[in-house]
């Protein structure tokens, strides 16, 4: 299988509409016949990333590369950046506002969930410039 590259814009603003990019990716991964567990882990990571981009950064872009041995998801935004990554990685820590919380988000589990379900996670962030989170998920051979 050759590397397949997918690009999904993530629109900012409306949290209630979030999840379109993740839903589309999930459908594509299913069509590619990837293992169910790999699809599930990739979908959760992507959805959490999408929610983060909507809540904190007014959207962004997700690039997904399906390689023979792994899936690489790169979620990039031009939002405010993360001042303290270690703090942001703690379960339960959140800077999300009341609207997000009323909808059931903002539990401080987004980044920890992405770490939990990925094989590798890299956060590249600069305050005032934006954040890129790269997730790698291995495909069992």
């Amino acid at each position: 299988m050759e590397t397949i590259r997918l690009v999904y814009p993530v629109e900012g603003g409306d949290l209630i509409e979030a999840g379109e990019a993740s839903s589309k990716m999930k459908l594509t991964l299913k069509k590619l016949g990837l293992p169910q567990d790999v699809i599930r882990r990739a979908s959760i990571c992507m959805y959490e990333g999408e929610i983060n981009m909507v809540i904190h950064a007014d959207g962004g872009q997700a690039e997904v590369e399906v390689e023979p041995e792994q899936i690489v998801i790169r979620m990039a935004d031009t939002g405010p950046g993360i001042p303290d990554v270690e703090q942001a990685m703690q379960e339960g820590y959140s800077t999300a506002g009341s609207t997000a919380r009323e909808l059931g988000f903002g539990a401080g589990m987004g980044l920890p969930n992405m770490k939990r379900y990925s094989d590798e996670m890299i956060i590249d962030t600069e305050v005032g410039k934006g954040t890129t989170v790269t997730i790698k998920i291995k495909i069992p051979q």
């Binding site: 959490e48 929610i51 909808l103 988000f105 539990a107 589990m109 987004g110 920890p112 969930n113």
Partner: peptide, 24 residues
């Protein structure tokens, strides 16, 4: 009812009980 908590903890093929009723 906390959506990220559900994504982190609910097992595949579970029945998910919640009082959340929005489209997320």
């Amino acid at each position: 009812d906390l959506l990220s908590w559900v994504m982190g903890r609910a097992g595949q093929d579970s029945a998910w009980l919640t009082i959340m009723s929005n489209q997320n």
